[in-house]
């Protein structure tokens, strides 16, 4: 019987396993070990699993605070005024910073009105972006190491994600919210330009988060249809409406069934008069006179093409 010359799978695997491995000039792992352990002893302890309150405790171990049980006022009363103010102006990494977050969360829990809650969330998102800018500045000036910066940026971006998402999913979104999120998105893009590595990746995440939140807020505005609000309950002639343009002519625009007449007194924000067209989402402040509603100010909130191009 003639033995087959052909290689079997097992023989191929064996041949592969026997290919000699490269002889590397390995480093002295013991020396590397002591360098690494030295670095480790200088950085923070490993992150522990975080329960809500424990994240904010930091060095305030004597304060047993559970958000929702103690009002903002009580916290401010129990601390020296200077400390409270310092806390609200602090940034991540400072020992007093956890207190700022506690105060924010309690403020949120005590707010019932959905629209005010969304505004608060937006304000907190803005705070996070300002904090990010401060941290990056400190890193540039050498006051914070790259590792510390990356850690703080990662945590701050996580919080930004929560607040921006919460603000955007408000059932009563306002045009101002979309513009604010757009503004935060631009700031984050600018901030990420001079960064590298992990910090840049985290900031890119934040840019994406604000972009998605802005689009969600916009969709909520569109879904909510025309929203007509009277910001000034005393002057019933003043009207503010936000929604998609359904009709545009030289003399008027319509958002659904509401028609606004254009006049020489109409002012335009973020858009020119000749750029008005159907499907743009606008916010219109108007005034009713002689049974007609005139547009006093038209503000472009967003357009289909600007959302796609980002």
């Amino acid at each position: 019987m003639i033995k087959s010359n052909k290689l079997t799978d097992e023989e191929i695997i064996q041949k592969l396993s026997l290919v000699p491995k490269a002889r590397l000039d390995l480093p002295d792992f013991a020396i590397l070990r002591s360098k690494i352990m030295d670095k480790i002893s200088r950085v923070a302890e490993p992150e522990k699993e975080q329960r809500f309150a424990s994240y904010f405790i930091g060095s305030f171990r004597t304060l047993r605070i559970t958000a929702g049980l103690i009002g903002t006022g009580l916290i401010l009363v129990s601390l020296a005024m200077g400390t409270a103010i310092a806390a609200l102006q602090s940034s991540p990494g400072q020992t007093i910073y956890p207190l700022k977050r506690i105060v924010e969360n309690i403020e949120l829990k005590l707010t019932r009105d959905e629209s005010k809650k969304a505004n608060l969330q937006l304000k907190f998102a803005e705070n996070r972006v300002m904090e990010l800018e401060k941290i990056l500045e400190q890193n540039e000036e050498g006051r914070l190491s790259n590792e510390e910066t990356q850690k703080i940026v990662a945590e701050t971006v996580k919080d930004l994600q929560k607040t921006a998402t919460a603000a955007a999913s408000s059932p009563k979104p306002k045009a101002a919210l979309v513009n604010k999120l757009k503004d935060l998105n631009t700031k984050l893009q600018t901030a990420s330009i001079n960064t590298e590595g992990e910090v840049r990746l985290e900031l890119e995440k934040a840019v994406e988060v604000t972009k998605i939140s802005k689009e969600e807020a916009l969709q909520n505005i569109e879904r909510a249809g025309l929203q007509v609000e009277s910001d000034n309950p005393i002057n019933l002639d003043e009207v503010t409406a936000t929604g998609k343009l359904t009709a545009v002519s030289d003399t008027s625009i319509s958002i659904g069934a509401v028609k606004f007449y254009l006049s020489s007194d109409t002012s335009y924000v973020n858009i020119k008069a000749d750029e008005l067209k159907i499907d743009l989402v606008v916010s219109v402040r108007g005034q009713t006179k002689d049974n007609k509603t005139f547009a006093l100010e038209i503000t472009l909130v967003d357009s289909p093409t600007s959302a796609e191009s980002q």
């Binding site: 590397l32 480790i40 490993p46 992150e47």
Partner: peptide
């Protein structure tokens, strides 16, 4: 590169120390 590999090794383990709870 040996030196680059040493630096990246060092970063890897420092990061691992910080995130080992995950």
């Amino acid at each position: 590169h040996k030196e680059v590999a040493e630096d990246i090794l060092s970063d890897t383990f420092v990061k691992a120390w910080l995130k080992i709870s995950q």
